[in-house]
Amino acid sequence: MPSSCQHQPIQNQLLAALRTTQLERLASHLELVHMPLGDVLCESGGRLHYVYFPTSAIVSLHYILENGASSEIAGVGNEGMLGVSLFMGGETTPSWATVQTAGYGYRMKAGLMLQEFNQATPIQRLLLRYTQALMTQISQTAVCNRHHTIEQQLCRWLLLTLDRLGCQDLTMTQELIASMLGVRREGITEAAGKLQNAGMIRYRRGHIMVLDRAGLEKHVCECYHVVKKEFDRLFWDVRKF
């Protein structure tokens, strides 16, 4: 397990938004965990025993059809938390939660988080705001998948991933990206080729290096900016929590 000087709860933006006294109260219940690629944190219809606050990992929320095809409906990185169904009353969801990008995060027993939420502490308002932002991401993903080109969808996905990782080098196969977007691998190959020819990315053997982020932001559809604007709007002064 890495040392505490390398990993801190405040590397997750939700935890960082809490006042020092609030975070200190939760700290003893937060467990640092490694989140390996492909790890299934929750199956369709399953109940979460823990909520997760990713710091360097990214979790994909996706739905798997009866024929085995799947599509991502949202992602959760260092901006959020996995487990909003816990306090929304549904307890379970039809989607799966799988680690898309390996890394670390903090987990907390679901029962303890529910107790904290039900006490109407500041974390309740914070998590409700995050849930609204997550709902925006889910709805905008549905709109994007229906109305925009694969190239635009790929730009959106790349930018959201960059925001969560804070780096320009991604380890990701075309097969996995195609699964995330719910499209054929050939479509991703063609879209990535266009972006590479335009000098925006360099792709080789499962690694994507973003060379021109500004170019991606000009090329992407409005869906990326809608999601980013909503997160910024809801959390512009998060320290008040």
Rank of each mutant, 00 (worst) to 15 (best):
L165K: 08
R107S: 04
I188N: 02
R213C: 03
G83L: 04
T136Y: 04
Y130C: 00
R107V: 08
L211F: 09
M108R: 08
P2L: 13
L114C: 07
L14W: 10
A192I: 15
M172V: 15
S44P: 11
M113L: 15
L176S: 05
F87P: 00
I73W: 03
Q115R: 14
F117K: 09
T131L: 09
R107F: 04
C42H: 07
L61C: 13
E24F: 14
R19W: 04
G182V: 10
R107E: 08
Q132W: 05
N145A: 12
N118K: 12
L48P: 00
L37G: 03
G206C: 13
H219P: 02
F87G: 06
L176V: 03
P9W: 01
T92A: 06
L159N: 01
F235R: 02
F241S: 09
T101K: 01
G206L: 12
L48H: 04
I64A: 04
E24P: 03
V143T: 15
H148N: 06
L18M: 14
T141G: 09
I58S: 10
E230V: 06
A198W: 13
G38R: 08
K229W: 10
S71Q: 10
I10H: 11
R205I: 01
N118V: 05
A97G: 01
A192T: 07
W157Y: 12
H7M: 14
V76L: 06
C155N: 04
A57P: 05
R107H: 07
P54V: 14
Y224P: 09
D39N: 05
V183M: 07
G80C: 12
A102I: 05
G182I: 13
T20P: 11
R205K: 11
D232M: 09
L216W: 02
I150P: 04
L86N: 14
M180H: 15
L216Q: 01
R19Q: 14
H34S: 13
V51F: 09
W96N: 08
M200A: 04
L112A: 12
F231C: 05
E190I: 07
H62K: 04
L181N: 02
R146D: 13
G83M: 06
T101C: 03
I188C: 00
M88H: 11
T136V: 14
G105E: 06
L158A: 05
R233S: 08
V59W: 01
F117P: 07
F53T: 10
C155H: 01
C144A: 10
R146T: 10
T121S: 14
E186N: 10
E66Q: 08
T98R: 07
L158P: 01
G206N: 11
M81G: 15
Q8L: 06
T149D: 03
G83N: 05
A191L: 08
E91C: 07
R204Y: 10
Q124T: 15
L32V: 12
R25L: 11
M108H: 03
C42S: 07
G80E: 07
Y203K: 02
Q168N: 15
E116V: 00
R239M: 11
H219C: 11
T93V: 14
M209W: 12
P54S: 07
K194M: 05
I64P: 02
S85V: 10
P9K: 05
L216A: 06
K194P: 02
G75A: 08
E72I: 01
M113N: 13
T98P: 00
N67R: 11
D232E: 12
